[in-house]
C-alpha cells in the first residue's frame, strides 16, 4: 500500500537534493570578499536601526487563526464532495445546513471587524 506513495517520496528527495546542491554551489563557487558594510542588513543605505524582529500587528495573527478555522472546513468538504453523487439529497441538505452554520460564524467574524484592514 505504501508503495503507491513512493513516487512522492522520490520526488521530495529529488527536490531536496536539487535545492541542497544549489545552496552548496552558492557557498562554494563565487568569490568571498566580505566587508563589514557588505554584511550589514540592507536598509536603503542607512545604518540599520534596531533589530527587525520586533512586534508586528496582531492582524496577521488573526488571519492565521481564521485560516486554521476555515481550512479545516475546506478539508472536511473534500470527502463529502467526492461522495456527493452517492449521498444524493440527504448529503446535500446536510452540507447546506453545515454551510449555513459556517457562514453565520463567518458573518459574525466579519461584523466584529476581524477582517478589517486600514
Amino acid at each position: 500500500m505504501l508503495v503507491h506513495y513512493l513516487p512522492l517520496i522520490i520526488m521530495i528527495a529529488i527536490g531536496a537534493i536539487f535545492g541542497l546542491t544549489n545552496i552548496i554551489m552558492a557557498e562554494i563557487l563565487g568569490p568571498k570578499r566580505s566587508t563589514r558594510a557588505k554584511l550589514s542588513t540592507y536598509e536603503s543605505g542607512m545604518e540599520p536601526v534596531k533589530s527587525a524582529r520586533e512586534r508586528f500587528t496582531v492582524k496577521f495573527y488573526l488571519v492565521a487563526m481564521m485560516f486554521i478555522l476555515f481550512d479545516i472546513e475546506v478539508v472536511f468538504m473534500y470527502p463529502w464532495a467526492v461522495q456527493f453523487k452517492s449521498l444524493g439529497m440527504y448529503g446535500f441538505t446536510a452540507m447546506i445546513l453545515f454551510m449555513v452554520l459556517l457562514f453565520s460564524g463567518y458573518l459574525y467574524v466579519v461584523k466584529k471587524g476581524a477582517l478589517k484592514w486600514d
Binding site: 535545492g19 545552496i23 552558492a26 557557498e27 570578499r33 566580505s34
Partner: peptide, 26 residues
C-alpha cells in the same frame, strides 16, 4: 558572491530556498 547578512540566521537563511524549491518540485 554569496552574501549572508551578519545579523541573519545562517542555517534558516540557507534552508528557506531549499524548502521553496523542494515543494515546487514535489
Amino acid at each position: 558572491e554569496d552574501i549572508v547578512p551578519a545579523a541573519a540566521h545562517y542555517q534558516f537563511h540557507a534552508l528557506a530556498p531549499i524548502i521553496a524549491i523542494g515543494v515546487a518540485i514535489t
